[in-house]
């Protein structure tokens, strides 16, 4: 529960303007699903968290946002120490109570355990930030929906088929659902609940 000062890494050099730039990249990513963004305003993340996921956390989290960490990330004292020190976010044990859930592609939670909001308040859902090994516009998923003129191709590495099946199944519950932000080392992309995902059968 405590913060170990020897584990602390740097936050933004300029909290105001760097935070704004990361947010603008996120706004573009969330409003145009599948469009790759590379804000890259920070050099390193704490422990096993990559720099890209770390800048997203710095831009969005604060004392008002309970955060849930997947088992592997929670075991990393550097991550929880830095989240406490820089963001002051309360860390919760149940993803149901989290505004944000942070995980690694190898360690994704059961989506049905996250908070999908309610029909009346779909905005109360958990936003899932997933650290992944690779993101590209190679054809694998075909995305359609708001923010996409015709369709967009997206390939995200390292995700389990169970997770992808759960994500696609959750589309049935719109407007309830989970908005995902995927972060590789240098690229971020968002797939909000309004985006339809079709898996290209030709691809692997």
């Amino acid at each position: 529960m405590s913060v170990s000062s020897e584990l602390l890494v740097a936050g933004f050099n300029d909290a105001v303007h760097d935070g704004q730039q990361v947010f603008r990249a996120l706004l573009t990513a969330m409003s145009e699903p599948g469009k790759l963004q590379q804000p890259n305003l920070i050099a390193e993340g704490p422990g096993a968290l990559n720099a890209n996921s770390w800048q997203v956390a710095l831009a969005l989290l604060d004392a008002d946002t309970p955060v849930w960490l997947s088992e592997r990330l929670a075991a990393d004292a550097a991550i929880s120490s830095n989240l406490r020190f820089h963001c002051q976010s309360p860390q919760v044990d149940s993803p149901q109570h989290a505004a944000f859930a942070l995980c690694d592609a190898s360690d994704v939670p059961d989506i049905t355990l996250l908070n999908m909001g309610s029909a009346e308040q779909p905005d109360r859902s958990t936003t899932l930030i997933v650290q992944v090994p690779a993101i590209s516009n190679e054809p694998h998923w075909t995305l359609t929906g708001p923010g996409i003129a015709t369709e967009r191709q997206l390939r995200i590495g390292g995700l389990s088929s169970t997770f992808v099946e759960q994500l696609i199944a959750s589309r049935q519950r719109f407007p309830m659902g989970i908005d995902c932000i995927f972060c590789s080392a240098d690229t971020l992309v968002a797939v909000p609940r309004s985006t339809q995902i079709d898996i290209n059968m030709g691809g692997r």
């Binding site: 996120l26 969005l60 008002d64 909000p192």
Partner: peptide, 16 residues
């Protein structure tokens, strides 16, 4: 930050 989080939710649920 509070407004930015609301904006991200708003674009994810168009019209809500």
């Amino acid at each position: 930050r509070m407004i930015r989080r609301a904006l991200l939710k708003a674009v994810a649920i168009p019209g809500f």
